[in-house]
Every structure is written in C-alpha cells, then in structure tokens.
Amino acid sequence: MAILIELLNSQGRVIERHKFNQQQISLGRGYHNDIILLDPHSCAEHAILTLDEQQQWQLTDMDSVNGVRNQRGQRVSQQLISKSGQEFTLGRQRLRLLFSDHPIAATQPLHGAERLLPLLSSPLLLICAVLLVALTLGYEFWLDGLGEDSQWQRQLLLIPFLLLMFALWPLLLALWARFTGREPQLRPQLALTFSVLVLWTCWEALAALLHFNLNNNMLSQGLSYLLPTALLLLFFWFSFSLLSIKRRWLQVGLTLLFSSFYWVYPWMQPSPLHYAPQYQHQLLPAPWLLRQPTSTDSLLDSSDRLFRNTAARAEQTRNKKPQQGQLGPLASNE
C-alpha cells in the first residue's frame, strides 16, 4: 500500500505532500534522502520508514541527535504505524503519515463570497466604488463650506488620506491572510469595502427622505435599525468569507463581534449633558415632501401622550422615594 508523508509547519498546516510506492523511505537533511528535511535540528540521516513482511510500516530513529517524538512528545526509537494520520516530530519538523485509503473531507460547494469573487475582483467595480466614495466626501466638504472664508477646496486634499483610512480594514485582512498562509484577496476586499461605503451613502440619502416624510414612525425607525445592521453583517460576513475561515462558528462570532460595535459604541457613551431633548429634525427642500402636512389640532391632540408619559414617569419616581413618616415628596431626594 502506498504511503503519504505530509510535512507540516508549526501551526499544523501542510506545506509539502509526498506519495511513495517503495518499501523504504529515508528522511534526513542529507541530499541522498527521499525526503530532504530543511530543519537544522534534524540529522543527515534522521529516520527511515520501512514496510515489513506483514505489510506494516515502521518508523525507525537512526540514532539521531534530537530523536523522533510521537504525538504525546515521547521519544521513540522504533514505532509501528498502525493507523493512518499519525503525527511525529523529527528534530523540530512535524510530519504526518497517511495511507492512500485515508478518507478525505466532502467537497465544499462554492459559497456566496466565492461566487461574488469574480465580480469583486473586477478593477472597474473597484475604481467606480472608490470614485463614488471620494465624490461623496468631496460633496460633504462642499456642503459644510459656508461663508466667504470657507476653504472647503483645501479640505479636498484630505480625501486620499480618508480613502487610505477606509482601506485599512482590507489591508489588515490581507496582511492577516498573508501571515496565515491564505490568499490575501486584497482587491476583492477593497472592492467589498468601498461598495459597502457606497451602499451606506445610498442608505443615508434614503433615510433622510424617509425621516423627512415619515418622522419617527415604525417604518422609518425600523429601517434605520435594520438596514445599517444588515449592511454591516453582510460586510463582515463576506470579508471573513474572502479570508476563507474554515470554522463557521468563528466566522459567525467575528461577524457579530465587529457588527455589534455599531450599537455598542453609542451605548458606551456618557448620556448627553443637561438632558437635551432628542427629536427628529430632518429637513429637506419642499419638492421632497411627498405627503400632506398634518394639522395643528392633530399635533396638539397627539401631544397629550407626551404629558401622560412624562407625568407617569415622574409619578414612578415619586413612588420609589422612601416616604419617611410625615415627609412629603420633597423632603427626601434619595
């Protein structure tokens, strides 16, 4: 039966795979060996694998300096290879021995991100997305610039730096991929990041229109929670997919962790000073108003709810305060 020898790096990732049909295989640093080891801690003739009469493979240490160790770290001089997949360390070189009938994992279907890959890899998409993001930034500088002394044109020089800042995430992922022996996929990661930024800008424009016309009703409120969250979840999911993280739970965990920052960060901030009121203040020019304005009466009628709610909250606080004997609500502020 043929035998396979897989050389592993320190993380257990396969870096070389060899298949042999002969009855004896020598391993060592010497150039005459069948497997030439690069590890300086291995000897010129470190070990041999031999097939005996019972058709069983044996690994034998050739009196090497650093020896052969099994998976439990014990030094062995001769070891019968009873089952496929056993691991040994020669010096510091890890290797795994497999029989040719070793079962293999099921074929993985191409998932969403990989099907998206050709699209994301297109330079045209990347250029368009980057340009749109740059244009949005420029538009915002222009929008802010008011007055004779406005120097919004100078601020345009910031755009390349801001784009670089947005590119930090894809760069970081590419770097990580590089370190862990995966494909960096820098261009797809960049295209994904900038496409999501474009989608985010589109959402902001839509949100302005919704908030202007619908104020804070269920639909606009719900969408302002759902859509940004969905965009972030998708973004991080595909980002990690492009990184080909094998463990699904890790990908789900990382996606949730990074997306949750969007909600956790505002929650961490100290509550606004002086109890400033929070309200919908979206304004747009008149042509964007797509509905009939309401009447003074209906606004004032529905304001009863505000009085009711706040009075109930005040009442709750009053009830919570300890009533000490004859003391009224004012006497104790605890």
């Binding site: 202007f212 104020n215 009121p277 309200y279 919908q280 203040h281 979206q282 309401t294 606080t317």
Partner: peptide, 20 residues
C-alpha cells in the same frame, strides 16, 4: 423627567412646517 418629544410636518398658515 427626560424630555419626551414629537415631531411632525404641520401646515401652519398653509406653509408646511417641521414642528417639534
């Protein structure tokens, strides 16, 4: 208590107005 607010587009003298 904290402020409780409502905000709507109201017709004030026939002019659409954001009222808070």
């Amino acid at each position: 208590t904290e402020f409780s607010c409502q905000s709507d587009i109201v017709a004030l003298a026939n002019q659409a107005t954001r009222v808070i």
